[in-house]
Every structure is written in structure tokens, then in C-alpha cells.
Simulated assay, not measured.
Amino acid sequence: MAISTAAPRMLALGRAELILLGRNKMALYVALLLPVLMVWTMRTTIGDMDLGDTGMSLNETSLTGAFGFILLFVIYQNLVSAYVARREELVLKRLRTGEAGDAEILGGTALPAVAVAVAQMVVLVVAGVFWMDLRAPARPDLMLIGMVLGVVLSIALAALTTTWAKTVESAQLVTTPLLLISLVGSGLLIPLEAMPDVMADACELLPLSPVIELVRGGWLGGLSAYETVGHLVTALAWTYLAVFAVRRWFRWEPRR
């Protein structure tokens, strides 16, 4: 019964948020165009890199890394701004006085960004297989698990990041550290296999690294059972910690 009543409330919140997203042209352009621009930039950046040790081609590296760009820019960055804006407008506070639970409010607000992200991920796979001659996903189940964990983790990290943002304007600033760390260290721009061993071992522990490795391994194959379990445990641990931190420190109303 609880699930049957929660779904309509989340969809209603999602529809309202989608309307607001459509009115915010800058946020819409970031969600739709920035990941594509980043993939093109990535191909240009690593075009001269020797990828022989990674076992991946330029197209394989670019397209699998693009999943990280989508998680960062379509979900994470957009949601930080959305959550802060709704908090400062007292929308979140008013919603909490109704029947919707905390997870429903945060999840409903995230629905449009998640829908756009999932659509872009599907387009990536289709374009990669039918246009760029990449192999079909070797482990679709593993790839799906990585995508789901990435979406949930990105939402939780976005909600947590809002605790450091006092205004909508500062929301873009507080997302910068995770964006830069993930772009450089989580295998989006430079595959972990191309890094020195010590650096790669450290970067594997970053929040998005296990997600990218699961998606990359699910599409291209090559992950051993040991590596798969290790990435799953790391991704689940980060997700649990992020959700716990959100429940503990997320602010539902403006600071006084």
C-alpha cells in the first residue's frame, strides 16, 4: 500500500520538477549538451595517448568514460542546484509537512535528471554498437548494476553536497572538488589501467571509480570475479555512506 501511494507522489514531484527544468535553459543545456562536449574534449585529449596497455580502443575508452560525465553533469551537478533552490524557496520544508517521505521528496525531485541521464546512456550504447562498431555489451547485467549504483550514488552525493551550499550561486562552486577529482582520478579521462600502479590503486577507492569500472567491464568484458566483487563492495560502501550522511546532515530549510 505504501509503495502504491508513494509512486504517484514521486511522479507528481517529478512532473513539477521537469517543468522547472524546461524553464531553466542553462540547466537544460548543461544536462543535454555538456556531456557530449566533454566526450568530444576527451577524445581530443587522449587521442595521442598510448592505450595499448589498457586493452581498449579510443572509442571504447571515450564512450565508457562518458557514463561518468552523464552521472556528474546531468545528475550530480544539476541536482545540487535543484535541491539548494528548493530548500531556499522553502519548497522542501513545505513538502515535508505533507504525506511524502524524505526519500520520496528527494527521489521525486531527481526524476527528470535521472530520466535524461538514462536516455543518454541508452543512446550511448546504441550509438557505440551500431555507429562506432563497438562490441555489444558482454555483461549487460553487470553494466546495469553499475548504472543503477551510479545513479543512486550521484543522487545521494548531490543531496550531501548541498550541506555546503548556502545559495544557488554557490552550488556550482561546491560541486567543483568532486567533479575535478572524478574527472581526473575515476577513469573518465585517463583509464586506471594507464596510471602507475600505486596511483591506480588509490584512485580505485574514489566514489565513481567502481561505478565506471563496472560499466566498462559490463560493456567490454574482462573483469574477473575478484575484481567484480571488489568494485561492487566499494560502490555499495560509498552508496551506504552517502545515504547515511544525507539522513544525518541534509538541511531541509535555509540556514538562519
Rank of each mutant, 00 (worst) to 15 (best):
M121I: 09
T54I: 00
F67P: 03
V246F: 02
V243K: 03
G230H: 00
D201E: 11
A2T: 14
S170A: 12
T64Y: 05
D102G: 15
Y83K: 06
V39Q: 10
L160T: 00
Y76N: 01
I155T: 04
T44N: 14
V148P: 07
A225M: 10
V129G: 06
L153S: 05
G65M: 00
L18E: 14
E204L: 12
L13T: 07
A237W: 12
A200K: 07
A171N: 05
I105G: 00
R251H: 04
L180M: 12
T175P: 02
L106G: 03
R247M: 04
M143R: 08
R43E: 15
R251K: 12
P207F: 01
L232I: 11
W238R: 00
P112I: 00
L205S: 10
A66H: 08
S62H: 02
T162F: 03
G107I: 06
A16S: 13
A2P: 07
V36I: 12
D201R: 13
G185T: 06
M1F: 15
E17K: 00
T54W: 01
S186K: 04
A27I: 04
A31G: 10
R15L: 15
L206K: 05
I46M: 05
L111A: 02
A171M: 06
L92N: 07
E99Y: 15
W164T: 05
A158I: 04
T45I: 14
L37P: 00
L183V: 05
S81C: 11
A165W: 03
M38N: 00
N78R: 06
V122M: 07
A194D: 01
P210C: 03
A127F: 09
M199S: 07
R248E: 03
A113K: 02
S62I: 03
T61Y: 00
W249D: 09
R135T: 12
G217M: 06
E227M: 08
I181V: 11
L192V: 03
D197E: 13
S4G: 10
A82V: 11
G218T: 06
R255F: 08
Y29S: 15
V91E: 07
R94D: 10
V118L: 10
G47S: 02
V148A: 12
S170N: 09
A159W: 05
T234K: 07
A100Y: 09
